[in-house]
């Protein structure tokens, strides 16, 4: 199963504290023990933060190689990186295009705060995921037409259930939620009703948004809640399986292919599921050294195959 939203502790380009990192490690291992094998570390960028666009290396603050090395003991666990750009001013969307070119992140997501920026993201931008803010009131009415337009381009919608469990200030007991917490929870329910209605239960990516190990939930529990919110039960598990996979593959193809026609690499075809061929290796590595050394006896092997 997939979980495309494991929150990176820092919202800027400052390194997180060791305690925060420890928390992240625990969250990842907790998610893995719940059966989520494909995880994306989510780096949320508020609009005020300036991206270091000149240097492609500095764009991604998440030490993916370090994380992968740390979790090498779990062979099934796959880690990806994701960036979520908060957009309220449509004029500032130029940064998205530049991120696309570098291939620093596996997934590029956008959090539109206004109707204009939502329209722009669905119509023009080449991104993978739209993550609407679930805890605040939307200043617009979500139309099925807008959602359908995005879905036909392959952009999925994220339904992040952290607001349901943690509230705005992380995990607390229900009595300690406070007034704002209760309002945000109420807001979350009405927002998810809107999203489920506008998308007709299709193209939704369910994700945890877990900042702490305690925020992780089993997918069955989540689906039980969302079935009360009119999520169609016949294909609701797609939100954990098929749709996030499509998001990952689209992100990969955006980096390594020319508009999904010819992709770089992909001769090691022994994946167990369909589409897994496209998630082999790392995109950023694939871009750096795309040449393959001739393996010993390859020609012989080829000839034998042919005969």
């Amino acid at each position: 199963m997939y979980d495309l939203n494991v929150v990176w502790p820092s919202q800027e380009y400052t390194a997180p504290t060791p305690a925060q990192l420890e928390n992240l490690y625990n969250t990842i291992s907790m998610l893995h023990s719940f059966g989520y094998n494909y995880l994306a570390i989510n780096f949320i960028v508020p609009e005020s933060v300036k991206l270091p666009q000149s240097k492609a290396q500095a764009l991604n603050p998440i030490p993916m190689a370090d994380l992968r090395h740390r979790f090498r003991g779990f062979p099934k666990l796959r880690l990806f990186s994701r960036i979520t750009l908060v957009l309220s001013d449509p004029a500032k969307c130029q940064s998205v295009l530049k991120i696309n070119n570098t291939g620093a992140f596996d997934i590029v997501a956008v959090q539109p705060m206004t109707e204009k920026s939502l329209q722009l993201t669905t119509a023009n931008l080449d991104i993978d995921l739209i993550s609407l803010p679930m805890a605040t009131r939307w200043p617009f009415f979500l139309k099925h037409k807008t959602v359908g337009q995005a879905l036909s381009k392959g952009i999925k919608f994220e339904l992040c259930y952290s607001g349901l469990i943690g509230g705005p200030a992380g995990y607390q007991s229900a009595s300690a939620l406070g007034v704002t917490g209760k309002i945000s929870r109420k807001q979350f329910l009405s927002n998810s009703l809107q999203l489920i209605r506008a998308s007709r239960s299709q193209g939704l990516v369910l994700s945890s948004g877990a900042a702490e190990p305690m925020n992780v939930r089993n997918h069955v529990d989540i689906l039980a809640i969302f079935s009360q919110l009119d999520l169609r039960t016949s294909n609701c598990k797609e939100g954990f399986m098929k749709n996030p996979e499509a998001v990952l593959i689209k992100g990969r193809l955006r980096i390594t292919s020319n508009k999904q026609t010819v992709m770089l690499g992909g001769h090691s075809a022994d994946g167990e599921t369909r589409g897994s061929i496209m998630l082999e290796g790392e995109a950023s590595n694939a871009l750096k050294s795309y040449k393959r050394k001739r393996e010993d006896g390859e020609e012989n092997a080829k000839k034998q195959n042919l005969q």
């Binding site: 690499g265 061929i277 393959r292 001739r294």
Partner: peptide
């Protein structure tokens, strides 16, 4: 899938998406 030789001992592998072709 197909592969192209750059020089004698280096290859590049490519994959064609049939549905887009």
């Amino acid at each position: 899938g197909f592969s192209l030789a750059v020089d004698e001992n280096e290859y590049i592998d490519f994959t064609i998406m049939g549905s887009r072709f």
